[in-house]
């Protein structure tokens, strides 16, 4: 029992990072119906910007996080303006392929500037272990990751449901053609969506650097695709679904690795998720859309 509770803490740590990335996928998808395949690489860029902030500027934890989120949000908006906006009325797959291209560009741009060898991410908070009742121990990195993620996600949830801008976002995802008639600047909302999504992924990148302190330019590929899977499992386009999907994926991976040899982790985790999708094709919280004929 104790073992499983300890694993649950690890799962919450991993799941938080997946959830932060999955949010970016799901927000962009909700608004543009675009699978932003460059998002995993935005997460990677976030980790490297965080590394630059921590090493060169010598920033402590919270400023590093804010600095990284701001820089990466700017990057996300720039990509949206330059690459996706001209394709707003093109066939949907053109934008998806552009996203794939941007992702490969980001990987190799970082590879070219930083080099291929993995970099060590410095620890930004004092390490420490705390005993919980029931024989569990939790370390300061876990508290940091779960704490920061939960705060960011609660903030986002409030923003989407409680503010006028959030309402505009929900309106666009409901029906984009009507929203401009209400006097809402759609382009501004779309840019804001990319900014928020990229900032969350960047936060995920810095937190990832704290938990698993080796980062390299290709790390965004696998983690990004996994986060996409998490978003789909939760029901793509649904914000709470993405959070749920992230934690489900984290738990599946950690529990499988706890029981079986860790090389089976991806295999079992993906098979389970595939089965889930066969029985619930729209994801857990996804809306079933009636097909009109």
């Amino acid at each position: 029992m104790e073992f499983w509770l300890q694993q649950t803490l690890n799962a919450l740590q991993l799941g938080s990072i997946y959830a932060l990335i999955a949010l970016g996928y799901t927000m962009v998808y909700g608004i543009l119906r675009l699978i932003n395949f460059a998002h995993g690489d935005i997460f990677m860029v976030g980790a490297f910007v965080g590394l630059a902030g921590a090493l060169w500027l010598g920033l402590p934890m919270v400023p590093t996080l804010l600095f990284t989120m701001a820089c990466t949000a700017l990057l996300g908006v720039t990509i949206e303006r330059l690459a996706y906006k001209p394709l707003r009325n093109a066939p949907r797959v053109s934008a998806v392929i552009t996203a794939l291209g941007i992702g490969i560009f980001l990987e190799h741009f970082v590879l070219g500037t930083v080099g291929a060898e993995p970099r060590a991410f410095p620890a930004l908070i004092a390490g420490g272990r705390f005993d919980l009742p029931g024989g569990l121990t939790v370390n300061s990195v876990q508290i940091l990751i779960i704490g920061v993620s939960v705060v960011l996600m609660l903030g986002l949830d409030w923003f989407i449901r409680g503010t006028l801008t959030g309402m505009a976002m929900r309106a666009i995802s409901w029906d984009r053609s009507v929203v401009p008639l209400m006097g809402i600047n759609v382009d501004r909302i779309i840019s804001l969506t990319f900014a928020i999504g990229s900032a969350l992924a960047a936060a995920g990148g810095v937190l990832f650097g704290q938990a698993y302190p080796i980062i390299d330019p290709y790390m965004g590929i696998l983690i990004g695709w996994k986060a996409f899977i998490a978003a789909v499992v939760g029901g793509i386009g649904n914000i709470r679904g993405a959070m749920l999907g992230g934690y489900i994926l984290g738990m599946t991976e950690i529990y499988v690795a706890a029981v079986l040899p860790s090389t089976y982790r991806d295999f079992v985790a993906f098979t389970l998720l595939l089965l889930l999708l066969v029985f619930r094709p729209t994801g857990i919280l996804g809306r079933v859309q009636a097909q009109k004929v």
Binding site: W225, V232, F267, L277
Partner: peptide, 29 residues
Amino acid sequence: AIPSFRTRGDYLALVTLALNMIVKSVIEN
């Protein structure tokens, strides 16, 4: 093909993506 009977578009993307990862993982084992 079997899940593709029920899902289309972006969900099928996920199925094929997962299949790619599963195949790679199986070969590694």
